[in-house]
Design a binder for these strands. Structure first.
Lengths: 129, 129
DNA sequence: TCGATAGTTAACCATGTGGTTAAATATTAA
DNA sequence: TTAATATTTAACCACATGGTTAACTATCGA
């Protein structure tokens, strides 16, 4: 239905797949940061962080603005919106029958634990050539 | 705040980062499928698909149930719920000031195009040892 | 029992990722 | 102008990923 931007989703999901990068995003959610300050809590070298930042940049999740010799890193959440929209296609497969996702998200913290699905016969045709 | 399951998120986001795997999930959203049928639209070998399915299984996004010589593949959306919950932490960074994510998700299809963010000074401290 | 069908496993290859250390670049401060 | 600071680039390494072909296992059907 909606034509999701495939390449963008590749980069966004790939960027989110690493816990260090997710932690960086978490930090940035509290405010912009220099590269050095961003790197500080992690037990890896600065070049390693620099690479992670490039992965985040490629996904459009981070921008850097040069300010003297310092790079000010800023969270850009737009790609997350697209990612969440893509996933949201599937919400009927995980959500309670009783509760919409909208309602669900308003009640984060409450827990729901239910799932069910159609039991359609598999269409097993492999007859090519 | 919420302690998201790090390892699970790693696997889930990694699984979603590949367009073939997303297409497989899309297909499964229309009903269960055999491996051969799943592979049919893709221009890759069956072992390649078999590997993709293992990545999806590792993420808990797919289960297989053996039925004779056929494996019935089924979508499991629960990990997507966790992924969306994680991303939802950031919704305030992309959503309109006027509209909550709940409302936003109810209105998928309408488009919003706005973003703004705090302009906090970077805390540039790199003073260790 | 024998062949076809469904799918996996094995072995291999190219490429990407995440890390390293060392060196380069740019800017600030002395 | 020279040294320190902030960060990137380069060169390298180990390992994961996504693909291949070939061979194997399991099941169905004749």
């Amino acid at each position: 239905m909606v034509n999701y931007r495939t390449e963008a989703l590749n980069f966004t999901f790939a960027a989110l797949a690493d816990p260090t990068r997710r932690a960086i995003l978490d930090r940035l959610s509290f405010g912009d940061s220099s590269v050095t300050a961003l790197a500080e809590p992690f037990d890896v070298s600065l070049p390693a962080i620099s690479k992670q930042l490039r992965v985040l940049e490629r996904a459009g999740l981070l921008t850097q603005e040069k300010d003297g010799r310092v790079r000010r890193c800023r969270l850009e959440a737009q790609p997350m919106k697209e990612a969440v929209e893509w996933i949201a296609q599937y919400r009927r497969f995980w959500e309670d029958k009783l509760e919409s996702l909208a309602g669900y998200l308003e009640n984060l913290g409450l827990e729901t634990d239910d799932q069910e699905q159609e039991d359609s016969p598999i269409d097993s045709n492999g007859g090519n050539s």
